[in-house]
Amino acid sequence: MTTPIASAEKKETVRSPAQWVTLSYAAVFLLVGAAGFIPGITTGYDTLQFAGHHSEAMLFGIFQVSALHNIVHVLYGLVGVALARSATSARHFLLWGGVVYLGLWLYGLIIDTDSVANFVPLNTADDWLHLGLGVTMIALSFLRRESRHARSIR
């Protein structure tokens, strides 16, 4: 029999490895998206465009960014936080997010960086980052659904 006091106690939240990884990626996406709007962290900030390859703003002096690029990172981070609530949705975020990043990597390899097709904008550093993100996110989507702690308390 459960007493009212015991039932009022909060249950311990146990997150799966996939949920922790998703929260980590989401936090980085949020930080990077916000950093893209901070002069100094983003060099050439005065050249920041909403979209397109004419933006010469460079996050950390390496990655070409635009306002659209930064907004997408923030939105990606918010989606990651929301999907980290369950192990299954966290794994889907990692898997499908990784697929999207591999698609961006291929897109960056195919397009001419000086063309209007480069609306994101992308440069070589972005391409390598997108490859790394795509591969690691897909690989990490195969993490266990449960934490070891969750299995041991059953």
Results as ranks from 00 to 15, higher is better:
Arg15Phe: 13
Thr13Lys: 15
Leu95Tyr: 10
Leu106Asp: 02
Thr47Glu: 11
Tyr76Leu: 15
Ile111Phe: 11
Thr13His: 13
Leu143Val: 03
Leu30Trp: 03
Lys11Val: 13
Ile111Gln: 11
Gly77Tyr: 00
Ala8Met: 11
Ala26Asp: 02
Ile41Pro: 03
Met137Asp: 00
Val21Asn: 00
Gly33Tyr: 02
Arg15Cys: 08
Gly80Ala: 05
Gly98Pro: 01
Tyr76Val: 15
Ala90Ser: 14
Asn118Tyr: 11
Ala27Ile: 11
His73Lys: 06
Val116Gln: 12
Thr88His: 06
Ser141Gly: 15
Gly33Ser: 06
Thr22Glu: 01
Ala150Cys: 04
Asp126Arg: 05
Asp46Tyr: 10
His149Lys: 09
Thr136His: 01
Gly134Ala: 03
Gln64Trp: 06
Gln49Val: 12
Gly36Cys: 05
Leu106Arg: 03
Ile41Ser: 03
Ser55Val: 06
Val28Lys: 01
Ala125Gln: 10
Ile153Tyr: 01
Thr113Pro: 13
Asp112Cys: 04
Gln64Asp: 08
Tyr25Asp: 00
Phe93His: 01
Lys10Asn: 15
His73Gly: 06
Phe63Ala: 05
Thr13Asp: 14
Ala139Asn: 04
Leu31Cys: 11
Thr113Lys: 14
Gln49Asp: 13
Thr22Ile: 03
Ser89Gly: 03
Ser16Lys: 08
Gly132Met: 04
Ile71Pro: 10
Val21His: 00
Phe60Met: 15
Tyr101Val: 00
Glu12Tyr: 09
Ile153Phe: 01
Arg145Thr: 12
Gly97Glu: 01
Val21Pro: 00
Phe29Ala: 10
Phe50Tyr: 15
Val100Trp: 05
Leu143Asn: 03
Ala117Glu: 08
Val79Arg: 06
Ser66Lys: 10
Gly132Asn: 03
Gly103Ile: 07
Leu83Phe: 14
Ile5Tyr: 13
Val65Asn: 10
Ala150Ile: 07
Leu131Gln: 02
Trp128Pro: 02
Leu75Ser: 12
Ala67Glu: 13
Met58Gln: 15
Val81Cys: 12
Ala117Leu: 11
Leu78Pro: 07
Phe63Val: 14
Ser147Cys: 05
Ala84Met: 05
Leu30Asp: 04
Trp105Asn: 01
Ala150Thr: 07
Leu104Met: 10
Leu104Lys: 00
Leu133Cys: 05
His69Trp: 10
Met137Lys: 02
Glu146Lys: 12
Gly97Ile: 00
Thr136Phe: 03
Gly44Asp: 06
Gly98Gln: 01
Pro4Leu: 13
Val72Asp: 06
Gly52Leu: 10
Ser147Asn: 03
Ala84Ser: 15
Leu23Arg: 14
His53Leu: 14
Leu30Ala: 10
Gln19Glu: 14
